[in-house]
Nucleic acid binder design. Structure first.
Lengths: 175, 175
DNA sequence: GTGAACATGTAAATTGTTACATGATTAC
DNA sequence: GTAATCATGTAACAATTTACATGTTCAC
């Protein structure tokens, strides 16, 4: 999802500012894309020019807080973008990259990688559990349950089989 | 992992050409990064200038096949890059993005997303099972088992609970 | 003989991040 | 009062993709 679509996605749930969009993307839309402020503001300007969003109240002073609202045109664009998405999924994993080259690492680093990944997974698990599932659409619940299923499997693997393989890596390094 | 490190990673397993590196990255290093030819060739030029890799035999005619070999300096760089990786993992999922906005989609599109994701997961599962685990380092086996654990969980979820939620999405759309 | 895959390399265009410039509001 | 967070916006810089330009090799 490009930055513009991400903005439309956030604004489809309520009015907010550019800064608010950044927070919302980082908190809720992490798996769909990323958006820094330097990308969000130009995107909002383009969306406004195109009529996909509009400024709530006319805050015209420079550097003043500007709250945006999605228009019907914007909703149509968002629906089109959602319908255009495919069933793909890409994982970028410095964790797996490090483990793949474990034979070049100190065991310290291997253990650090494991612990960092486990901490990240547990944090994400907590975050997902704290979400207000009752106020969501079925689609949103679906994405949360899917993420939970995958994260739980990853934690189980690292906790059980994973530790055993790390021991095997150690034995391989010092025969 | 940036394109240069990806090249070093591939070359650490054997000599090959720029074109061969692209295939290897797409086939084996998919989870670590991506690399198109337009990025690989400039990266190889820089690595050669820096002495991290060298050309095997002096193929000096333009457009002629050039096979590269990693040097000790390159191996050291690769080890440093591997040690610098953290335990993070990022998922970019057009699939989840589509499902999140399922309320804006036709049920046709929802089913298509499910089927495409399932097909992708099953293909990846087959690919992982066909890999020669016996000739790998423990670290490589670790990454494969981890991926298998996660993929199996995703398939199980989509096959069982997932289909039920899709029915709930349908009921939500047409009350 | 012809289409697919193999092969290299450059450059335009795209896209986004980071840094800079500037300031208001809020909590301690 | 001061640090953190909120807030906007521009521009330099970086990285990569896509398209272009040019062939060769192999299988059918």
């Amino acid at each position: 999802m490009d930055v513009g679509t991400l903005c439309l996605g956030v604004l489809s749930f309520g009015e907010t500012s550019g800064y608010g969009i950044r927070r919302a993307v980082a908190d809720w839309f992490r798996h769909f894309g990323q958006a820094s402020l330097g990308a969000i503001y130009p995107a909002l300007a383009k969306l406004t020019a195109r009529g996909a969003i509009e400024v709530v109240g006319a805050a015209d002073a420079p550097l003043e807080k500007r709250v945006f609202r999605i228009t019907d045109k914007g909703r149509a664009e968002l629906a089109a973008a959602a319908a255009a998405s495919d069933g793909s999924e890409v994982v970028r994993s410095p964790f797996l990259a490090g483990m793949f080259f474990a034979h070049l690492l100190q065991m310290d680093d291997v253990h650090r990688l494991m612990n960092e990944r486990l901490a990240g997974l547990r944090g994400e698990q907590r975050r997902l559990r704290s979400l207000p599932a009752d106020t969501m659409t079925e689609g949103q619940r679906f994405t949360i349950r899917y993420s939970q299923a995958v994260i739980t499997a990853a934690i189980d693997f690292l906790d059980h089989e994973g530790r055993a393989i790390v021991n095997a890596i150690d034995r391989e390094k010092t025969p």
